[in-house]
Structure formats: C-alpha cells, structure tokens
Design a binder for these strands. Structure first.
Lengths: 147, 147
DNA sequence: TCATTTCCGACTAGATTCGTCGGGATTCAA
DNA sequence: TTGAATCCCGACGAATCTAGTCGGAAATGA
C-alpha cells in the first residue's frame, strides 16, 4: 500500500515546476537541489513524464523542463499513473477482460467489491488534487520557494 | 499502490473462516483448497494472524483455525495491518516523531497533506469493512460455500 | 567553440516478494 | 500405544522490484 520513491519524487518535482510555472524552462539541476532528489534519478522520472506529455523540455544551455499544461489541468493521479502504473490495489481490477468479473472464482466477486471500493477511494483523492491545489496551498502557507 | 498476495490471500482466508464461523476449527488444508492458495504459504499467514490475536488455532487431529472474534468485530484493516504493516502511502506519515511535521523540508507539509488525505481515505474503507459485511454479502449473492 | 543541458540505454547492489522445505510438537481416535 | 492429522517454526531460495549510478551522445545558446 505504498507509493514508491518514483511517485513521491515525481510529485515533488511536478510541484516544484508548478511553483515555477510561467518562468520558462527550469533546469533539472535546480529542481533536484530544491527537492533533495538525485539528479540522475530525477532525469529518469522527468523523461517518463515528458514522454507521457505532462512536461515539455528544452535542450541546451538555458534549457530545462516546464509543465506542458497549466497547473490546474494536471492531477496527482496522472503523475502517479505515469510513474507507477495503474492506481489499483489488485491487478485483476484493471484487466477484467482477461479473467472475467469473477477473477476465476465465484466468491471473489464479493472481495472484488471490497477492492473496488478501495480503488475508487484512492482515485477520488488523487484525481481530484491538481498541481494548482498544491501550489495555492503552498502560497497560502508561505512556503513557495520562488524560482 | 498495490496490496501484496499476503494481504490478498490473508483476507480471502479470513473471509473463508468467517463463512465457517461457529463450526469449530477449520483445517488449513480446507481453506487453502477453497481459496486456491498454497498450503505452506497460507501457514505463514495464519501464523501471523494467530500471533496477532485475530484467529485461534487448535492443534492435532480435528484441529484447525477459527476466528478469534465474531466476524462483525474483525475489519479488513486489521488483517492488512498484520500482514503488510501500517496502511500508509509514505512511511513518514506514521513515524512523524523521527523527522518532525515537516519531513525535513518546509514545503513538504503541503505534500504531506496530500498523502494524509490518501491515507485517510484508504483507512476509511478498510477499517469500515468487517468480515460480517463480506459474509452477509456473500450469503445474499448465494456464493457462500458451506463448511 | 565551449559550457550547459537534455536524452538514452545499460548496469548493479540491495531489498522485497512469494513462496518451498524439513522436521518437530500436539492431539484425537482406533 | 500407535498412527494419522494437524499446527508450529525457522531456514532457505528464486525471481522480481527498487533505487539508483554511469558513460556518453546530441542539441543549444553565448
């Protein structure tokens, strides 16, 4: 039931880019330093987020990364899905095509309801929290580190 | 964001014991067969659940396992915690004694709120679903395998 | 041309997961 | 008292996942 560091660091990095949204590309090095994440590791994560269309990059000197959309249009759920795969407690909830609604055993549809409830409640939180929500809260608390 | 097989199989086994609650000890072998779980693996899980006080066991011939409390007094959250540890997306949410409310970085208290929301919503589902809920639903659906 | 920066694939050490295995202890029943 | 059924326990192991590192190529602005 844990988020791995991929998801955790990825959200931190995206939060950082949200705070700096509108200031042009931000070098990975700056994000890594502020968010206390290894540069080489973060490179992997931002690469995946770029390929998924959540950030855009500019190469070369004065280059860097920026959000591909305004902060209010990017949710934490999107970020987690790119970095950790589907948000689901059990794989069979997503691939119900393969094993049918019963997961192979009739009584499992009882337990399936349980796991589905859990999935829904996780997705409800993650899909309804945008980077803008996090940004405005940071500003309200006065912890937004500019640029 | 996944439940491991420990949690999944553990819930299945406890669900099975709930369906058979009141019939005396049920041998592990029977549970394993009905729930399609390896006997030797399930032995590990039921051992942990016994040490945690959720099931009781009777040794020797005609022995087996049974719920240590009525099904309405055992929640899925209890089972998961025994088999997978604390229900939390990030370790720092539980051990806030160590690193303080800021997790080392001031702006993390913003993200902390996000992860706390996620944790709360997971716990709400798991702690409010009892084995009796699952049992009565199984009976309603007619999928409860007797004995 | 040079420093900066992204991009890419390969690699690795360690932890975790998902079990298996062998044997011991206990209990009931014949 | 013997034997089958059953729980109990610790050690072991293969496969997978996690959390990165590393080396170098390509692009870009000054």
């Amino acid at each position: 039931m844990r988020v791995s560091t991929r998801g955790e660091y990825g959200v931190r990095a995206m939060f950082d880019l949200a705070l700096n949204y509108g200031n042009g590309p931000i070098p990975l090095k700056a994000v890594a330093k502020r968010q206390l994440v290894s540069e080489t590791y973060l490179e992997q994560l931002l690469g995946a987020l770029r390929r998924a269309g959540l950030v855009s990059s500019t190469r070369g000197a004065q280059g860097g990364y920026e959000l591909a959309h305004p902060p209010e249009r990017i949710t934490v759920g999107q970020i987690i899905r790119v970095l950790e795969g589907p948000i689901t407690p059990l794989d069979c909830l997503d691939t119900d095509s393969g094993s049918g609604p019963y997961c192979g055993q009739p009584d499992q549809c009882v337990l399936r309801g349980l796991w589905k409830n859990l999935q829904d409640s996780m997705e409800r939180v993650l899909d309804n929290t945008t980077l803008e929500d996090l940004r405005s809260k940071a500003i309200r608390l006065g912890v937004a580190q500019g640029q």
